[in-house]
């Protein structure tokens, strides 16, 4: 559904991605693992149009997306939950969610937004309790839920999740992954970047391993979990 083909991208003259190809099939959860600096976040930034490609193709189904600005890519149905959550601190929880549905809300589909709010509150009941609170005063875990809820408000066709567990306590990591699993059963197509490779492979259908801006290995999550090289490099010997 979302395809990146032979993408080269970088910042200024520094190239970060050296020809990566990733395919996220409809309804599947694909995860991207690799060490720090491998280019995972850059891949996500390319996929949502935050970073323009230098060469290569980005497409959602048959629709080419490369060269489009981030706000146009979003309108085609790619929703990106960025690394570090990046909620809008001076807006309330409810306003953050409303802004997440910005495009639909602008064009008079306000009534339908209430359905989406209910759906998001269903995934993250905490947000409902805190809906009048300023997002800047939420805890890290709540901000992560808000960032995901906000992305869901646009009814995305593909959800990009960049390090959703970063900086969270183990209990909250479990909560976040529970929500990801729920989304997966609901049929959401997702691309996930995750530092906890074992947890990610536990829920993913398919996985890509990145090193130095290249895909070095890919396969079903089952295959990669059993791969000794992966075990040593990313999963830790204990697993």
């Amino acid at each position: 559904m979302l395809t990146l083909t032979d993408i080269h991208a970088g910042y200024g003259r520094t190239s970060v991605l050296n020809g990566i190809s990733i395919n996220v099939p409809r309804g599947q959860l694909v995860c991207l693992i690799g060490s720090n600096g491998a280019g995972k976040t850059t891949t996500m930034r390319v996929a949502s149009g935050m970073l323009p490609v230098q060469s290569g193709r980005l497409a959602l189904e048959q629709q080419p997306l490369d060269g489009l600005a981030a706000h146009h890519v979003q309108r085609h149905g790619v929703s990106h939950v960025p690394e570090g959550r990046r909620v809008f601190p001076s807006l309330s929880v409810l306003d953050n969610l409303e802004v997440g549905a910005y495009r639909r809300a602008r064009f008079g589909l306000r009534a339908k937004i209430d359905d989406d709010l209910d759906r998001v509150f269903g995934y993250f009941p905490r947000l409902k309790e805190r809906r009048q609170q300023l997002a800047g005063t939420l805890s890290g875990g709540e901000q992560q839920m808000l960032a995901m809820g906000r992305a869901l408000m646009s009814r995305p066709r593909v959800l990009l999740l960049d390090e959703p567990s970063m900086g969270l306590s183990p209990k909250l990591v479990d909560d976040v992954f529970a929500a990801i699993c729920e989304l997966r059963s609901a049929g959401m197509t997702m691309l996930l970047v995750e530092q906890f490779a074992a947890t990610a492979l536990g829920v993913a259908d398919y996985a890509y391993v990145m090193e130095n801006g290249r895909i070095v290995l890919h396969g079903t999550a089952q295959q990669l979990k059993g791969d000794p090289a992966i075990r040593d490099a990313y999963l830790g010997k204990a697993h």
Partner: peptide, 24 residues
């Protein structure tokens, strides 16, 4: 207003606002 909130969102975090489909 929604547009007003979009302006506040742009002020808070321009990049994140563009991820919401806002033409910052």
């Amino acid at each position: 207003t929604l547009v007003g909130k979009a302006v506040v969102a742009t002020a808070d975090d321009r990049e994140a606002a563009s991820l919401m489909g806002i033409n910052t």
